[in-house]
């Protein structure tokens, strides 16, 4: 029994330490970000790797999620004779929750893990040390651009995910089932609020972007410099990112939609 508590205690303590390290690392990144902004092409390069290369999976998944939402939504709504409200349903669930969260999870496993692996391997092969020895700060040169690449990509990817999803819902509703096109869009517009739904969703995805990018660069930079260490770091990136996204989502949702 005592063992369980002892284990729990040490787990909690190491968790707090880890959070402290991440926070300090975050401050370091912010401090050296200025240097990497001066050379924008570094960040643009990372935008390519985390953004452009995630495009395909985000667009395809968004479309499928929209198709499923459309079918399920129609199935439920037609029982109440209000199938033209399916646009509203698809749009709201995508904008508020599914877009940011699912895009965030996909982003963590597609781009976050890649960033961790890349930085981790640079550490294993002493590239970071060599850079440091050449008086080039690895946090400014390697970490900060990857961090900002992720932070910028994430909201754009989430918006693309939601857009594709709404398109999928429209395909099911208007093209296949024959819901009236005008009713589909006008019901949606009437129910979806720019500030409460769209902006809150964008805000969420921006927060997820910061969380995932931070976890990814931190795990890579902090990994044990061996093959095994890197593979563990990648696993931790995906797992911690997913937990962070879901926890943050819960916290933000409870603040954002308190009034409803």
């Amino acid at each position: 029994m005592g063992d369980v508590f002892r284990k729990l205690g040490s787990l909690a303590i190491s968790g707090v330490w880890q959070l402290g390290f991440i926070a300090r690392f975050f401050v370091l990144i912010l401090r050296y970000s200025g240097q990497s902004f001066m050379r924008l092409h570094l960040t643009i390069r990372e935008l390519y790797f985390s953004g452009v290369l995630s495009l395909l999976i985000i667009l395809v998944s968004g479309l499928f999620v929209g198709l499923v939402l459309g079918l399920q939504g129609y199935e439920i709504l037609q029982r109440y004779g209000s199938s033209e409200a399916m646009g509203t349903m698809v749009a709201l669930s995508l904008l508020r929750e599914l877009g940011p969260v699912v895009a965030g999870l996909l982003f963590a496993s597609r781009a976050g893990s890649a960033v961790t692996a890349e930085i981790g391997l640079m550490k294993v092969t002493e590239q970071l040390k060599a850079m440091d020895m050449m008086a080039v700060n690895p946090i400014a040169r390697v970490v900060a651009p990857r961090f900002w690449g992720g932070v910028v990509s994430m909201p754009l990817l989430a918006a693309l995910f939601s857009t594709m999803g709404i398109f999928g819902g429209w395909l099911i509703g208007v093209v296949f089932i024959g819901v009236d096109d005008g009713a589909f869009w006008s019901q949606m517009r009437a129910a979806v609020d720019f500030r409460y739904d769209v902006l809150n969703g964008v805000f969420k995805s921006a927060v997820f972007g910061v969380a995932v990018a931070l976890i990814a660069v931190f795990e890579g930079y902090d990994c044990v410099p061996t093959a095994e260490g890197v593979s563990r770091a990648i696993t931790r990136t995906v797992v911690s990112s997913a937990l962070a996204i879901l926890a943050l989502d819960f916290v933000m949702t409870s603040f954002m939609f308190r009034g409803l």
Binding site: Q127, M134, A135
Partner: peptide, 27 residues
């Protein structure tokens, strides 16, 4: 200072040319 690392520590995401150019471009 210049340090040659025991295992080379070349930047794997750049060509040989860019590796050698790296310190020149940075400093």
């Amino acid at each position: 200072m210049g340090m040659l690392f025991q295992f080379g520590a070349l930047f794997t995401d750049m060509t040989v040319f860019d590796n050698v150019a790296f310190p020149l471009r940075e400093h």
